[in-house]
Design a protein around this nucleic acid. Structure first.
Lengths: 334, 334
DNA sequence: CGCAGTCTTGACAGCGCTGACTGTTTGATT
DNA sequence: AATCAAACAGTCAGCGCTGTCAAGACTGCG
């Protein structure tokens, strides 16, 4: 930095101001400094910056998610935002199934260790009240991805899971399906819960009379197999199943294959996420696309936005990706 | 740290020595300091440590991998090792398909920015000579995962891909398969190349006469569909296909389904990696298990091992995971 | 024209540690 | 008992920045 200051003929502090985009810097000075920075290919030292200043230039991504596909997409979005803002990314995984004291201890260790400027929470951490309270007690900024409740409590990014569930319901209904099944996610995963209730409520509005069969798939492939098997044994057997994430939908597909049922001829299946799995099964899975990578990006941007125009909420778009796993029910051809 | 020193009644430097496990510290002093550290829940400040010292306590994970499953497993292994050694993990992705000048520019930015103590390279970066040369020029430590050549050049972790390929060949041969096909990976992915040659050579030794059909699957699901389709059109049609990674094997499975061929009744299929996909297809994929998470862990451990007993090579075990995608050929029942 | 207020720049201490060095004790050896 | 090396403990500068404060250069206004 000294070299830059010398070359530009200004003080160290002025270089610092330019680097940090502080106000009250004349255009002439800024230009000089920026030129010097470019010719010397100067990169500020992160360690010194965080030691001297109040920021650490690190954002932490906290996750506790069973799905690697989801995780990696979020991660890449967050990473992209961090790079743009010259921040670094630290990743930690939390096992929030344990008693809260343990979770808090782990959180405490992470916070003390990494001194992140802020954290990004992914589901199901997003709705863990105790985690939120912990962070707030320490007045640590955080942004949440896909929260279910208290949207105003922090910056957060989400899609309208309930509306998406309803969309699936309407589509299935329009195809003629009347006997429906749902594969739910982990009980603590509130976004999954919203998908389910959105689906159920829409069905009710549509005038559905038969009760909807439900089984827990834990958002995992193996769980999906079990849930699918259970649903197929249900009387009357559903003619269409909505799995609230793709991983479990893939499991349901296996259950169907085992039961000798062809998708979509004998049974229709709709997933959620449009993750990589949706196109690694045959037939390709019709599913709800949610912009996961974008959500990561948006969450990090919100977190890092120094503008601080109050904590903001972002609703991102979703849509139904029609592929090959939906058809009219066999007993009710279109 | 000052508080710790005061409480223990020693100098700052002594605390530093204990924290860094430096030699020449008496047991009594160490005990006192450790007690003080515990009661005060002292955590050294990473920024100050790296500013003052020569280490940054950060290891960088560089990847350029099409497979999220692979990536996330490596990452979690590396992460585990880092935690154990009180290191932090930084992740960067590199697009090594671009001209080398660009790759080098990106690398340079990463190196300058993060000042990592060392890097872990995953395939195909592992065998990118120019990347290795770059790192060496800067005398930056690195460890490689699954390198194909110059094993002695750095610390590295691998499995014997060639032997694994041979294992698949022998298994398929033993089942009675004589018309074989291979789905290859990206040409630059040398580990994939070894799997292929190991497979081919073993077949030759076994006395195979028919040429083996080959098609490139780019280690991706879509690529696997294309490669599978090509292979199935081949005359004579293979009775067994070896896909050199699971993602492309899943693609081949789709190609089979489209062609109306049942796995394993009509055609056998073997994957490689035992990734998450292997159990998200139906039937479950028989595949080679490679300890990916372990490889990440081992690579990081090697990198961080201050013991410096010379650069070391680690060969990890692999084995065939028999699931449901292998059977004797239809025209040659067991 | 003078004065308060604002914008722009610089001087300097110090963030929390470690590396290099100095001093002091211990134990082994002659 | 004298000598010396090895083991142990401490002092202090300074890593590369940023926050604080203050000074100088303007501006507008009565």
């Amino acid at each position: 930095m000294e070299d830059v200051a010398r070359l530009a003929g200004v003080s160290l502090k002025s270089v610092s101001r330019v680097v940090n985009r502080e106000p009250h810097v004349s255009d002439a000075l800024r230009a000089k400094v920026e030129a010097a920075i470019t010719t010397l290919a100067f990169v500020p030292d992160a360690a010194a910056r965080s030691l001297a200043g109040s920021r650490t230039f690190i954002v932490g991504l906290l996750f506790d998610n069973p799905s690697p596909n989801y995780t990696i997409k979020i991660q890449s979005g967050v990473y992209r935002a961090c790079m743009e803002q010259q921040y670094h990314l630290r990743i930690d995984s939390i096992d929030s199934d344990r008693p809260h004291a343990q979770v808090e201890a782990q959180l405490d260790a992470i916070v003390r260790n990494s001194r992140c400027d802020g954290f990004i929470l992914t589901p199901p951490l997003t709705d863990n009240i105790q985690v939120l309270a912990f962070l707030e007690r320490r007045s640590i900024r955080y942004a949440r991805i896909a929260p279910n409740s208290e949207l105003g409590r922090s910056a957060c990014v989400a899609i309208d899971d309930s509306a998406a569930g309803a969309l699936v319901a309407r589509r299935l209904w329009a195809l003629g399906h009347r006997r429906l099944g749902v594969v739910t996610g982990p009980p603590l995963h509130r976004a999954g819960e919203r998908r389910r209730t959105g689906f159920l409520n829409a069905l009710k509005e549509l005038g559905a009379t038969l009760p909807v069969a439900e089984a827990n798939g834990s958002f995992a492939f193996e769980g999906g197999i079990a849930a699918g098997t259970a649903l197929l044994a249900h009387e009357p057997r559903p003619s269409a199943i909505f799995a609230t994430n793709d991983d479990s939908a893939a499991g349901v597909m296996v259950a169907c294959a085992r039961a000798g049922l062809r998708v979509p001829h004998d049974i229709s299946l709709c997933g959620f996420d449009d993750s990589w799995v949706a196109k690694s099964v045959w037939p390709y899975l019709t599913t709800i696309y949610q912009p996961i990578e974008e959500m990561g990006y948006a969450a990090a941007s919100l977190l890092l936005d120094r503008g601080e125009t109050g904590d903001r909420q972002l609703m991102l778009d979703f849509h139904l990706v029609e592929r090959d796993s939906l058809a009219p029910p066999p007993d009710h051809p279109a």
